[in-house]
Write a protein that binds this DNA or RNA. Structure first.
Lengths: 144, 144
DNA sequence: ATCCCTGCAAAGCGTTTGCACGGTA
DNA sequence: TACCGTGCAAACGCTTTGCAGGGAT
Protein backbone atom coordinates (compact mmCIF):
# COMPACT_ATOMS: atom_id res chain seq x y z
CA UNK A 1 0.00 0.00 0.00
CA UNK A 2 1.43 3.38 -0.94
CA UNK A 3 1.45 6.41 1.35
CA UNK A 4 -1.35 8.22 -0.50
CA UNK A 5 -3.81 5.31 -0.36
CA UNK A 6 -2.95 4.69 3.26
CA UNK A 7 -3.57 8.33 4.12
CA UNK A 8 -6.88 8.19 2.27
CA UNK A 9 -8.02 5.08 4.13
CA UNK A 10 -7.10 6.67 7.44
CA UNK A 11 -8.96 9.83 6.54
CA UNK A 12 -12.14 7.82 5.86
CA UNK A 13 -11.95 6.71 9.50
CA UNK A 14 -11.28 10.27 10.68
CA UNK A 15 -7.70 9.43 11.52
CA UNK A 16 -4.41 11.01 10.63
CA UNK A 17 -1.30 9.62 9.02
CA UNK A 18 1.37 9.82 11.69
CA UNK A 19 4.98 8.73 11.70
CA UNK A 20 4.14 5.96 14.15
CA UNK A 21 1.30 4.54 12.05
CA UNK A 22 3.46 4.67 8.95
CA UNK A 23 6.30 2.91 10.80
CA UNK A 24 4.04 0.12 12.06
CA UNK A 25 2.59 -0.44 8.60
CA UNK A 26 6.05 -0.54 7.04
CA UNK A 27 7.24 -3.22 9.44
CA UNK A 28 4.08 -5.24 8.86
CA UNK A 29 4.57 -5.08 5.08
CA UNK A 30 8.26 -5.90 5.27
CA UNK A 31 7.50 -8.92 7.46
CA UNK A 32 4.31 -9.97 5.75
CA UNK A 33 5.17 -13.67 5.91
CA UNK A 34 6.06 -13.57 9.61
CA UNK A 35 2.81 -13.40 11.62
CA UNK A 36 4.33 -11.08 14.20
CA UNK A 37 3.13 -10.84 17.77
CA UNK A 38 2.57 -7.36 19.19
CA UNK A 39 5.77 -7.61 21.19
CA UNK A 40 7.81 -8.64 18.14
CA UNK A 41 6.22 -5.87 16.12
CA UNK A 42 7.07 -3.39 18.88
CA UNK A 43 10.71 -4.50 18.94
CA UNK A 44 11.07 -4.14 15.17
CA UNK A 45 9.39 -0.74 15.07
CA UNK A 46 11.40 0.48 18.05
CA UNK A 47 14.66 -0.38 16.26
CA UNK A 48 13.77 2.14 13.58
CA UNK A 49 11.77 4.58 15.69
CA UNK A 50 13.03 4.33 19.29
CA UNK A 51 10.62 6.86 20.81
CA UNK A 52 7.52 4.76 20.09
CA UNK A 53 5.64 3.32 23.05
CA UNK A 54 4.16 -0.15 23.36
CA UNK A 55 0.69 1.29 23.94
CA UNK A 56 0.86 3.05 20.59
CA UNK A 57 1.62 -0.23 18.87
CA UNK A 58 -1.38 -1.84 20.57
CA UNK A 59 -3.59 1.09 19.58
CA UNK A 60 -2.28 1.01 16.03
CA UNK A 61 -2.89 -2.69 15.41
CA UNK A 62 -6.38 -2.24 16.84
CA UNK A 63 -6.98 0.57 14.38
CA UNK A 64 -5.54 -1.41 11.47
CA UNK A 65 -7.76 -4.33 12.36
CA UNK A 66 -10.87 -2.13 12.32
CA UNK A 67 -9.73 -0.76 8.97
CA UNK A 68 -9.43 -4.29 7.61
CA UNK A 69 -5.73 -3.88 6.87
CA UNK A 70 -4.67 -6.71 9.15
CA UNK A 71 -6.20 -9.78 10.77
CA UNK A 72 -5.70 -10.83 14.35
CA UNK A 73 -4.72 -14.46 14.79
CA UNK A 74 -5.22 -16.49 17.93
CA UNK A 75 -2.86 -19.38 18.29
CA UNK A 76 -2.65 -21.46 21.47
CA UNK A 77 -0.09 -19.17 23.03
CA UNK A 78 -1.54 -16.50 25.26
CA UNK A 79 -0.78 -13.69 22.87
CA UNK A 80 -2.15 -12.70 19.50
CA UNK A 81 -0.41 -12.33 16.18
CA UNK A 82 -1.14 -10.32 13.09
CA UNK A 83 -1.00 -10.76 9.36
CA UNK A 84 -1.88 -8.49 6.46
CA UNK A 85 -5.41 -9.28 5.31
CA UNK A 86 -5.83 -11.61 2.36
CA UNK A 87 -8.91 -10.04 0.80
CA UNK A 88 -9.46 -12.44 -2.10
CA UNK A 89 -8.59 -15.84 -0.72
CA UNK A 90 -10.27 -15.92 2.66
CA UNK A 91 -9.72 -19.65 2.95
CA UNK A 92 -6.21 -20.12 4.15
CA UNK A 93 -5.06 -21.95 7.23
CA UNK A 94 -2.02 -22.01 9.41
CA UNK A 95 0.44 -24.74 10.24
CA UNK A 96 2.46 -24.20 13.39
CA UNK A 97 5.56 -26.20 14.06
CA UNK A 98 5.64 -27.23 17.71
CA UNK A 99 9.42 -27.33 17.64
CA UNK A 100 10.60 -24.18 15.83
CA UNK A 101 7.29 -22.29 16.22
CA UNK A 102 7.36 -21.17 12.61
CA UNK A 103 3.99 -20.40 11.04
CA UNK A 104 3.22 -21.65 7.54
CA UNK A 105 0.26 -20.73 5.39
CA UNK A 106 -1.82 -23.28 3.54
CA UNK A 107 -4.27 -22.80 0.75
CA UNK A 108 -7.09 -25.24 1.03
CA UNK A 109 -10.44 -25.12 -0.63
CA UNK A 110 -11.70 -28.29 1.02
CA UNK A 111 -12.89 -26.08 3.83
CA UNK A 112 -15.72 -24.73 1.69
CA UNK A 113 -17.10 -28.26 1.65
CA UNK A 114 -16.94 -28.55 5.41
CA UNK A 115 -18.61 -25.19 5.87
CA UNK A 116 -21.51 -26.00 3.59
CA UNK A 117 -21.85 -29.37 5.34
CA UNK A 118 -22.08 -27.49 8.65
CA UNK A 119 -24.60 -24.98 7.34
CA UNK A 120 -26.80 -27.79 6.00
CA UNK A 121 -26.60 -30.22 8.87
CA UNK A 122 -26.50 -27.84 11.84
CA UNK A 123 -28.29 -24.79 10.46
CA UNK A 124 -25.33 -22.77 11.60
CA UNK A 125 -24.43 -19.73 9.51
CA UNK A 126 -20.64 -19.70 9.31
CA UNK A 127 -19.17 -16.20 9.24
CA UNK A 128 -15.55 -16.86 10.08
CA UNK A 129 -13.23 -19.62 11.18
CA UNK A 130 -10.00 -20.38 12.92
CA UNK A 131 -8.25 -23.40 11.47
CA UNK A 132 -4.83 -24.18 12.83
CA UNK A 133 -2.81 -27.36 12.57
CA UNK A 134 -0.09 -28.12 15.08
CA UNK A 135 2.70 -30.52 14.28
CA UNK A 136 6.24 -30.69 12.90
CA UNK A 137 7.59 -28.97 9.82
CA UNK A 138 9.76 -30.82 7.33
CA UNK A 139 13.04 -29.49 8.73
CA UNK A 140 12.24 -30.18 12.35
CA UNK A 141 10.78 -33.62 11.61
CA UNK A 142 14.11 -34.57 10.03
CA UNK A 143 16.12 -33.60 13.10
CA UNK A 144 14.21 -35.52 15.70
CA UNK B 1 -15.55 -42.25 35.34
CA UNK B 2 -16.14 -43.93 38.69
CA UNK B 3 -14.27 -43.07 41.88
CA UNK B 4 -12.12 -46.19 41.82
CA UNK B 5 -10.83 -45.69 38.27
CA UNK B 6 -10.24 -42.03 38.95
CA UNK B 7 -8.23 -42.82 42.07
CA UNK B 8 -6.23 -45.37 40.10
CA UNK B 9 -5.42 -42.89 37.31
CA UNK B 10 -4.34 -40.31 39.87
CA UNK B 11 -2.16 -42.84 41.65
CA UNK B 12 -0.34 -43.61 38.39
CA UNK B 13 0.69 -39.97 38.34
CA UNK B 14 1.68 -40.06 42.00
CA UNK B 15 -1.30 -37.94 42.98
CA UNK B 16 -4.01 -38.35 45.55
CA UNK B 17 -7.75 -38.35 45.30
CA UNK B 18 -8.86 -35.29 47.23
CA UNK B 19 -12.29 -33.81 47.82
CA UNK B 20 -11.38 -30.85 45.62
CA UNK B 21 -10.27 -32.99 42.67
CA UNK B 22 -13.38 -35.13 43.00
CA UNK B 23 -15.58 -32.03 43.10
CA UNK B 24 -13.97 -30.52 39.99
CA UNK B 25 -14.33 -33.77 38.08
CA UNK B 26 -17.97 -34.09 39.11
CA UNK B 27 -18.80 -30.63 37.83
CA UNK B 28 -16.97 -31.31 34.58
CA UNK B 29 -18.90 -34.53 34.05
CA UNK B 30 -22.24 -32.98 34.95
CA UNK B 31 -21.60 -30.15 32.49
CA UNK B 32 -19.88 -32.18 29.82
CA UNK B 33 -21.68 -30.40 27.01
CA UNK B 34 -20.87 -26.92 28.33
CA UNK B 35 -17.20 -26.19 27.56
CA UNK B 36 -16.72 -24.33 30.84
CA UNK B 37 -14.12 -21.64 31.38
CA UNK B 38 -12.01 -21.88 34.51
CA UNK B 39 -13.98 -19.08 36.12
CA UNK B 40 -17.33 -20.78 35.37
CA UNK B 41 -15.95 -24.06 36.63
CA UNK B 42 -14.79 -22.33 39.81
CA UNK B 43 -18.21 -20.78 40.41
CA UNK B 44 -19.98 -24.12 39.99
CA UNK B 45 -17.55 -26.00 42.23
CA UNK B 46 -17.67 -23.25 44.85
CA UNK B 47 -21.46 -23.54 45.05
CA UNK B 48 -21.04 -27.11 46.25
CA UNK B 49 -17.71 -26.77 48.02
CA UNK B 50 -17.37 -23.15 49.19
CA UNK B 51 -13.89 -23.47 50.73
CA UNK B 52 -12.19 -24.20 47.41
CA UNK B 53 -9.77 -21.62 46.04
CA UNK B 54 -9.44 -20.46 42.45
CA UNK B 55 -5.78 -21.50 42.36
CA UNK B 56 -6.77 -25.06 43.19
CA UNK B 57 -9.15 -25.12 40.24
CA UNK B 58 -6.36 -23.89 37.97
CA UNK B 59 -3.99 -26.51 39.34
CA UNK B 60 -6.61 -29.21 39.01
CA UNK B 61 -7.47 -28.54 35.37
CA UNK B 62 -3.75 -28.47 34.61
CA UNK B 63 -3.39 -31.87 36.23
CA UNK B 64 -6.45 -33.27 34.44
CA UNK B 65 -5.07 -32.03 31.14
CA UNK B 66 -1.76 -33.81 31.73
CA UNK B 67 -3.71 -36.93 32.65
CA UNK B 68 -5.61 -36.71 29.38
CA UNK B 69 -8.96 -36.45 31.14
CA UNK B 70 -9.79 -33.06 29.65
CA UNK B 71 -8.74 -30.93 26.70
CA UNK B 72 -7.99 -27.23 26.83
CA UNK B 73 -9.76 -25.19 24.19
CA UNK B 74 -8.64 -21.82 22.96
CA UNK B 75 -11.39 -19.71 21.52
CA UNK B 76 -10.87 -16.06 20.53
CA UNK B 77 -11.71 -14.80 24.00
CA UNK B 78 -8.73 -14.29 26.24
CA UNK B 79 -9.51 -17.23 28.46
CA UNK B 80 -9.45 -20.95 27.92
CA UNK B 81 -12.22 -23.51 28.22
CA UNK B 82 -12.27 -27.20 28.93
CA UNK B 83 -14.06 -30.29 27.74
CA UNK B 84 -13.83 -33.94 28.66
CA UNK B 85 -11.51 -35.71 26.21
CA UNK B 86 -13.11 -37.58 23.35
CA UNK B 87 -10.61 -40.43 23.06
CA UNK B 88 -12.09 -42.28 20.09
CA UNK B 89 -13.32 -39.52 17.83
CA UNK B 90 -10.46 -37.05 17.84
CA UNK B 91 -11.90 -35.24 14.83
CA UNK B 92 -14.56 -32.94 16.16
CA UNK B 93 -14.83 -29.20 15.75
CA UNK B 94 -16.55 -26.35 17.48
CA UNK B 95 -19.17 -23.91 16.31
CA UNK B 96 -19.41 -20.74 18.35
CA UNK B 97 -22.41 -18.49 18.04
CA UNK B 98 -21.28 -14.87 17.99
CA UNK B 99 -24.58 -13.80 19.47
CA UNK B 100 -25.38 -16.19 22.33
CA UNK B 101 -21.80 -17.51 22.69
CA UNK B 102 -23.03 -21.09 22.89
CA UNK B 103 -20.56 -23.75 21.79
CA UNK B 104 -21.72 -26.60 19.57
CA UNK B 105 -19.81 -29.71 18.65
CA UNK B 106 -19.56 -31.03 15.14
CA UNK B 107 -18.46 -34.40 13.89
CA UNK B 108 -16.66 -34.10 10.64
CA UNK B 109 -14.43 -36.61 8.98
CA UNK B 110 -13.60 -34.37 6.03
CA UNK B 111 -10.76 -33.04 8.12
CA UNK B 112 -8.82 -36.27 7.65
CA UNK B 113 -8.71 -35.44 3.97
CA UNK B 114 -7.37 -31.97 4.62
CA UNK B 115 -4.75 -33.29 7.00
CA UNK B 116 -3.46 -35.90 4.56
CA UNK B 117 -3.42 -33.21 1.85
CA UNK B 118 -1.29 -31.05 4.14
CA UNK B 119 1.07 -33.88 5.01
CA UNK B 120 1.59 -34.70 1.33
CA UNK B 121 1.89 -31.22 -0.07
CA UNK B 122 3.75 -29.44 2.73
CA UNK B 123 5.60 -32.33 4.36
CA UNK B 124 4.12 -31.16 7.63
CA UNK B 125 3.38 -33.85 10.21
CA UNK B 126 0.05 -32.90 11.76
CA UNK B 127 -0.22 -33.80 15.44
CA UNK B 128 -3.17 -31.73 16.53
CA UNK B 129 -5.51 -29.03 15.31
CA UNK B 130 -7.79 -26.25 16.39
CA UNK B 131 -10.80 -25.90 14.13
CA UNK B 132 -13.39 -23.39 15.18
CA UNK B 133 -16.19 -21.85 13.17
CA UNK B 134 -17.70 -18.55 14.21
CA UNK B 135 -21.18 -17.57 13.08
CA UNK B 136 -24.83 -17.67 14.11
CA UNK B 137 -26.74 -20.63 15.47
CA UNK B 138 -30.19 -21.52 14.20
CA UNK B 139 -32.04 -19.80 17.06
CA UNK B 140 -30.05 -16.58 16.93
CA UNK B 141 -30.15 -16.40 13.13
CA UNK B 142 -33.96 -16.48 13.34
CA UNK B 143 -34.12 -13.55 15.75
CA UNK B 144 -31.97 -11.11 13.84
C1' DA C 1 7.63 -37.40 60.31
C1' DT C 2 7.22 -36.93 55.74
C1' DC C 3 5.20 -35.28 51.84
C1' DC C 4 1.56 -33.92 49.10
C1' DC C 5 -2.24 -30.65 48.74
C1' DT C 6 -4.53 -26.59 49.78
C1' DG C 7 -5.96 -21.50 50.39
C1' DC C 8 -4.40 -17.09 50.27
C1' DA C 9 -1.99 -13.36 48.57
C1' DA C 10 1.34 -11.67 45.61
C1' DA C 11 3.43 -11.72 41.29
C1' DG C 12 3.35 -12.46 36.32
C1' DC C 13 2.17 -11.47 31.63
C1' DG C 14 -0.27 -9.54 27.72
C1' DT C 15 -3.30 -5.87 27.01
C1' DT C 16 -6.05 -1.60 27.88
C1' DT C 17 -6.84 2.86 29.87
C1' DG C 18 -6.24 7.60 32.15
C1' DC C 19 -3.81 11.50 31.80
C1' DA C 20 -1.12 15.28 30.67
C1' DC C 21 1.85 16.87 27.00
C1' DG C 22 2.75 18.12 22.15
C1' DG C 23 1.86 18.79 17.36
C1' DT C 24 -1.14 19.91 13.64
C1' DA C 25 -5.07 22.23 11.38
C1' DT D 1 -7.75 27.22 19.96
C1' DA D 2 -9.47 22.84 19.41
C1' DC D 3 -8.49 18.24 18.83
C1' DC D 4 -6.31 14.16 17.87
C1' DG D 5 -2.33 11.19 18.84
C1' DT D 6 1.30 10.00 21.79
C1' DG D 7 4.32 8.20 25.78
C1' DC D 8 4.23 6.91 30.28
C1' DA D 9 2.52 4.64 34.13
C1' DA D 10 -1.11 2.57 36.32
C1' DA D 11 -4.83 -0.63 36.01
C1' DC D 12 -6.77 -4.66 34.19
C1' DG D 13 -8.10 -9.79 33.59
C1' DC D 14 -6.52 -14.31 33.42
C1' DT D 15 -3.15 -17.35 35.15
C1' DT D 16 0.85 -18.96 37.89
C1' DT D 17 3.69 -19.11 41.95
C1' DG D 18 5.55 -18.73 46.90
C1' DC D 19 4.51 -19.84 51.20
C1' DA D 20 2.89 -21.47 55.43
C1' DG D 21 -0.64 -24.43 57.42
C1' DG D 22 -3.18 -28.95 57.44
C1' DG D 23 -4.07 -33.81 56.27
C1' DA D 24 -3.09 -38.32 55.03
C1' DT D 25 0.10 -42.31 55.10
Amino acid sequence: MNAATFKERLKEKGCKLTTQRRAVLDILVENCEKHLSTEELYTLVKARYPEIGLATVYRTVQLFEEMGIIDKLYFDEGCSRFELSHQENHHHHHLICSKCNKVFEVENDLLAEIESHIEDKYNFKVMNHNVTFYGYCETCAKNM
